[in-house]
Amino acid sequence: MKKIFLLILIAFSLGIVSCKQDPKKETTNNEEIIPVEVVSLQQDSIHQSIYAAGQFTTDDETALGFKNGGVINRIYVKEGDAISKGQLLATLNLTEVNAMAEQASLALQKAQRDYERASNLYKDSVATLEQMQNAKTALDVARQQHSSAGFNQTYSEIRAPKSGYVLRKLANEGQIVGPGTPVVQVNGAGQSSWILKAGVSDYQWSAIKTGDKASITTDALPGQTLEAYVSKKPEGVDPMSGTFQVQLQLKNAPAGKIASGLFGKATIFPSQSLQAWSIPYDALLDGDAGTGYVFITNDNTTAQKIKIQVDKIENGKVIVSGGLESAKALIISGSAYLNEGSKIKIKK
């Protein structure tokens, strides 16, 4: 009886051990393969609008300063004032400048007398030719110094180069400024057309041409759309923003309704098509600020996660401008179960 009971106990123990060990073997031996759907990738020519934002300005904003350094005597304008061409905007204290001009005038008079005396002595064979020539050279130098002093007197004041507005006052009366230090910033809005400087990406820049049509809206003019066109296409990146600053010139700017620095939104209509990929929205994973991620496969057995450049999302489609150049097939279903390097099986 004891032998029978012992045999039953041994058999029961072996059964428990086998139950614990079998699942481990299945987990270790089996590798999960995820079924997915894919589509082949091919660039298409896509006609689409380009959206950009920027600030209004004119193409002749100028920071004005004095040619010579000194103490600012008067500034006759304030920020926002309308100005006309030739209007006096600011002056320096002319005490030092006038003194230098007077010195130059006295030096010129002395050089003139010295030359006349040397010339007369040379005629009487008292002075040598060299002495007369040296006096003539000194006279010429004095004339140039007198001319320079007069020029400095003229540019010890600031006058408006064009009719427009004072954008900023950068210095105050009584302040000491150096040569060329900006004192006031003005524009020529009274004569020039307003433009919107809008930043675009390198992909968008390649599709834009000078003369392309555009439309602009701004919160300052609710419900109005301003017609514009691409007046300038830059050949370099703006170092401050890292974008290409395309200039959009307004065709008919409403008088008194636009100010420098005003924010505007632009829609540009390129005359040529863009080369891009159009993929289903469901294939797009997480993304931010124009970038996203998708899964692709190049061997139909392994999934690879890559970063893409998203240009636009519309009508359930994602327009991709970069990142898919080396991809053969895009995974459009089953992405939620995938990781980098996951084994996949293509659904028939």
Rank of each mutant, 00 (worst) to 15 (best):
A127F: 11
K78Q: 04
Q109M: 12
R117W: 05
L108Q: 14
T91Q: 07
S119I: 06
A99F: 03
D124G: 07
T95N: 10
N73L: 13
Q109H: 12
L106Y: 13
A118P: 07
D114S: 09
N120E: 11
G86K: 13
V71F: 02
S84T: 15
N93V: 01
Q87T: 06
Q109K: 13
L88T: 02
V77C: 00
T95M: 06
R113K: 14
E130K: 14
E79C: 10
I75W: 04
G86W: 06
A82H: 08
I83Y: 00
M100V: 08
L106G: 12
Y115Q: 07
N93G: 05
K85Y: 01
L89E: 00
N93C: 03
K85A: 13
R113F: 10
M100E: 15
I72C: 06
Y122T: 05
A104T: 03
Q87W: 02
Q103C: 09
E102Q: 14
V97P: 00
A107T: 06
K123M: 13
L89K: 02
I83D: 00
K110G: 04
D114H: 02
T91L: 01
E130R: 14
E130Q: 15
Q112I: 12
R117N: 06
L89S: 01
A90N: 06
Y115N: 03
Q112V: 13
L106E: 07
L108C: 09
A104P: 01
S119D: 02
A107L: 09
A127L: 05
A127T: 11
I75G: 07
E130N: 09
A111L: 10
R117M: 09
Y115H: 05
I72T: 03
N73I: 06
N120K: 13
A99Y: 11
L121D: 08
E102W: 05
Q112A: 15
A127S: 15
L108F: 15
L94W: 08
K123V: 14
Q131M: 15
E130P: 02
L94K: 12
T128P: 03
